[in-house]
Simulated assay, not measured.
Amino acid sequence: MNGSIADPKAVRRTILRNLRSALLELGSATKAELSDRLGVSFPTVSKFLGQMEKAGELLPVQLDDSSGGRRANRYSYNPEVMLGLALFLERTETSYIVFNCAGEVKDQGHAASVLTADITDFDALIAALVNKHPQISAVSVGVPAAVNNGRLIYIPEYEQFHDLDLKAHCEQRFQLPTVIENDMNAAVYGYYMARHQRSKLQPSLVYLYFGQNGPGSGIMLDGNIMRGSSFFSGEVSFVPLYDQYNFGEAMRASHPHPRSPDGDLSVDAVARLIAVFAAVLNPHGVILSRHEANEGLLAQLEAASQAYIPREHLPAFILSDWEQDYLYGLQGLSLDLMLSREAGGN
């Protein structure tokens, strides 16, 4: 027998997500408008809106003007009914934001690093935020680690977290849907969501960051995050660029190098890495944090990269706000969980 039967729960979550997204985007809509927009039958839309209304997800809106028949009810979404929590873990601190379904930030701040402590500090921070904001309905966590479906499979220097299934831990401990994401994957996703989500272009992008925990990259191919067969994609420290050094070692070395414009081995190392990305992936752009680079450095990197690959095949060199992109990516991941929840539950 060909084909497969769709999972009813997955279908429900898709319909709920699309209804919520449409109401948030449109501001308000009637059942007929939602049915036409989503391609879902009028009775199905009515059924789901009834459940959402009972759960407090809908706000009253005045009736539409009559065109001769019964005036249609108009619905808008209550963005405060659910809140999302996004945290990212760094060596020196843990940052967090709490936001509503419209993406409006309700709370934000910094706490002591949980990476340098243990899981009990992580639990205490989330518990405190959930107690402060009981409407938190989904959690996203960014980590400087390779992540396989919520399990931290490579997190150097923080052995107490190695091989920890952080997703399962959070969901069991707090009974909240949770997503765990590599920091650079979240950053490139956030950059994409802010600039390309509604465009026809599905770009290929590489986000490079050197950071507190060593270099890493987030890679997007044709609008999709590239994770790799063992979820190790983006761990660029291991790329063997020289006889004596891999990329991570080259970035830590201080030897001068004649191929780079200013004699700096690190500039040459980044230029070589960009040439590798250009030759293998041919991305539209390479993004660097404006806290680690400036226009002058981008010009140096572009010039140095041309020693290894023709200029016409180089990506665009882009500066962006890494922390903002990172948080925006985590916020988008958490929002997706929130909008896919069952009405009034998980």
Rank of each mutant, 00 (worst) to 15 (best):
A112C: 10
V270H: 05
G228M: 04
H110C: 12
I309E: 11
D321E: 11
L26W: 01
Y245F: 14
L337E: 09
D262H: 11
I15T: 08
V270L: 11
G218V: 07
L273G: 03
V286C: 09
A6N: 07
T116A: 02
S76C: 12
D121Y: 05
N213P: 01
S35I: 08
F99L: 07
Y242T: 12
I225G: 02
M82T: 04
D163M: 12
G84T: 07
S204T: 13
T92V: 08
Q300L: 06
D268G: 04
V130E: 00
P43L: 15
E249Q: 02
S35F: 03
G211D: 10
Y242P: 03
A29W: 05
D264T: 04
P8I: 07
D262M: 12
L85R: 07
A145C: 06
G228R: 07
G103L: 11
L330M: 05
R74T: 00
L59K: 12
A6E: 14
E157W: 14
D183A: 10
A117E: 05
S289T: 00
R227Q: 08
L89N: 10
A186Y: 03
F122Y: 14
S254D: 09
P144Y: 09
V40K: 03
P134S: 06
R17T: 14
K54V: 15
C170V: 14
V98Y: 00
L129T: 01
S233M: 15
I309K: 01
Q212N: 08
M1K: 10
E80R: 11
V267N: 14
T44S: 12
S289V: 00
I219F: 11
D163S: 15
L24Q: 11
A253N: 01
L83D: 10
L319H: 03
E90W: 08
P256G: 09
I15A: 02
Q197G: 04
F42I: 14
A250V: 02
L38Q: 11
L49P: 14
L327N: 03
G50A: 10
R290D: 05
L63A: 13
E33V: 09
E342K: 08
G56M: 13
Q160T: 04
Y245P: 00
T44C: 04
I155L: 15
Q51V: 08
S67Q: 13
L205Y: 08
V179W: 02
E171I: 01
R227I: 07
N346V: 09
A307G: 12
F232R: 13
S320H: 11
P261C: 10
Q244A: 06
Y207A: 03
V280K: 03
V280H: 02
L273K: 03
F247Q: 10
V139Y: 02
V286E: 02
N100V: 10
H284P: 02
I274R: 03
F231I: 06
S334E: 15
T30I: 06
A186P: 05
G218T: 12
Q306H: 02
C170W: 01
N2F: 15
K54M: 13
I5K: 15
M251V: 06
G263K: 05
E93M: 10
P60Q: 04
Y326Q: 06
N131A: 14
A124G: 00
Q108M: 13
H169I: 07
L333Y: 06
I318Q: 05
G263A: 11
